[in-house]
Simulated assay, not measured.
Amino acid sequence: MMTITSKVRVRELYERMGLSYLELYLVESVTGYLTLIEGVKLRDVRVIDIGCGLGIGAGLLSGITKQYACIDIACGLLRYPASLPNVDVVCSDGAMLPIRSSSFNTSILLNTVNADLDGSDLIREARRVSSLVLARSPRSIDNELIATLLRGG
């Protein structure tokens, strides 16, 4: 279970990384989003990107969606996706979303779910706010949790 202290540390880490995140993970992130959405209809649907970071998904996908909402615990990172057209940003913990149930068609969680921390809570919230959850992690243990929770109904 993730504590408030560990969430603060995560937020501070990503706030410090800022744009240097792109130097480390841009290609991996673009490939991850494109792979995750392969075969999924996103045109004219409402998408919520939980743990969006610098908004790479928003940059790739917001032009085809009806609405694209970026959610991240690191508020400073949201200034980048906030500058994109058709993108809403909310600084929030993805495990406790301030969003009405069934508000979105699709939730995206790319490299956000961590089975050792609050991965179950993130998936639960994504399922609460949308009818389709697309999630993937670089770690096998996280992907096993994702598959189990999404298969479970």
Rank of each mutant, 00 (worst) to 15 (best):
T3G: 08
R9Q: 09
R9A: 05
R11Y: 03
L13Y: 07
Y14N: 03
R16F: 12
M17V: 15
M17D: 05
G18W: 10
G18E: 07
L19W: 10
L19R: 15
Y21L: 13
E23L: 14
E23Y: 14
S29Y: 07
S29Q: 14
V30H: 09
G32F: 02
T35D: 07
T35G: 04
L36M: 08
I37S: 02
I37F: 01
G39M: 06
G39E: 10
K41C: 12
R43G: 08
D44W: 01
V45T: 15
V47G: 03
L54E: 05
G55E: 11
A58D: 07
G59L: 13
I64S: 13
C70Q: 06
C70V: 11
I73N: 14
C75D: 13
G76I: 01
L77E: 01
L77S: 04
S83G: 09
N86E: 11
D88M: 10
V89D: 05
D93T: 08
A95D: 11
A95M: 14
P98C: 11
S102A: 14
S103D: 08
S107L: 04
S107G: 03
N111M: 05
V113C: 00
A115K: 14
L117I: 07
I123R: 00
R127T: 00
V129F: 01
R136D: 06
P138W: 12
S140Y: 08
D142K: 04
N143F: 03
N143K: 10
N143G: 07
E144S: 12
A147K: 15
T148D: 10
T148I: 06
L150A: 00
R151D: 12
